[in-house]
Design a protein around this nucleic acid. Structure first.
Ligand SMILES: [Zn+2]
Ligand SMILES: [Zn+2]
Ligand SMILES: [Zn+2]
Ligand SMILES: [Zn+2]
Lengths: 159, 159
DNA sequence: ATCAGGATGTTATAACATTGCTTTTAGCGT
DNA sequence: ACGCTAAAAGCAATGTTATAACATCCTGAT
């Protein structure tokens, strides 16, 4: 098990760096890292919790000073998901940025019910076992959704 | 890895038996297995795929010959989830019946993108590893969402 | 200049879920 | 059987999330 990113202590510097990495990656891939996409990804990084599409829309409108339609945000989110720059948390209908969009990994998300802090862990051993299960079933896996809901250490200590 | 149930080859007999088990369990727990709840669970068993709440509503209306409101169905679904008689597939906003509502298990769901067949596998080793990860983080896990999307063996063979 | 493809704008609607309140029903002691 | 109580279900309205269908704009290649 290797913790690869936590939403909680995301510094300004990390956000800047993540945006730079994203920009570089998009250039390398020949896709456009437009202002909308960049600002949306920034919004996800700045938020210290998974954001719903409409919440991201509101924040984006607030920081950008213009109105947006849901479709616009969903399309930009789709782009970020396709490029691996963000991940959808299915059990929350929400989105978080990904810290390592360049290489594939077996992400397990720990999502706190109370403070919503979301910790991404890379557990390749779990990935291996699931791969075995899939092989045994003759199932071709396209996407993994591994999300654990509960209470984070910080919130546990609060009680 | 131990496959514990598959949605695909669910026979009439299995449905009958599952309903009987559910009824027995509810009696033992002192909760009411009402006609609505029984019919809803039956609807989930008869369907060979995860059903959305509104789809379940439509089928229930069709087979029961009466109109229902979303609230009614959602409440009944909540009951089935609480009792472990059904499970929500987060990545589909849909629900499937659970074959072993009596004992806790580490369910991994393989969901086919094409035919939507949903296979539940119990992988206790994965459960153990995730528990380790959680412990390392000091995270108290309340619920696991383990869903793998892809193509089932049957659909792979079709191509 | 024309064209093609990608990105975005616009409008409408589908799909999923909850809230608040009322009425009915089941279970229980009398 | 009767009346009480709590659970269950009915009902209307609304909130939330997601997509479809079509129009426009921009940029770079021919
Ligand atoms: Zn990641
Ligand atoms: Zn927390
Ligand atoms: Zn199960
Ligand atoms: Zn299939």
């Amino acid at each position: 098990m290797k913790p690869v990113s936590s939403m909680s202590p995301v510094t300004h510097g990390q956000t800047i760096q993540a945006l730079a990495v994203a920009a570089r990656l998009c250039v390398a891939r020949g896709v456009q890292f437009t202002e909308l996409r960049r600002r949306l990804l920034e919004t996800l990084w700045v938020a210290h919790e998974p954001l719903g599409a409409y919440e991201a829309l509101r924040r984006l409108e607030g920081s950008w000073g213009r109105t947006l339609k849901p479709t616009t945000v969903y399309r930009a989110l789709d782009f970020l998901l396709e490029q691996g720059l963000a991940v959808r948390i299915e059990s929350r209908n929400a989105y978080v940025p990904c810290a390592h969009p360049d290489q594939p990994h077996t992400s397990v998300f720990f999502v706190c019910d109370q403070c919503r802090v979301t910790i991404e862990v890379d557990d390749s051993e779990v990935g291996r076992l699931l791969k075995c299960d899939a092989t045994a079933l003759g199932f071709d896996v396209r996407r993994r959704v591994l999300e654990l809901q509960g209470t984070c250490a910080h919130c546990l200590a609060m009680r």
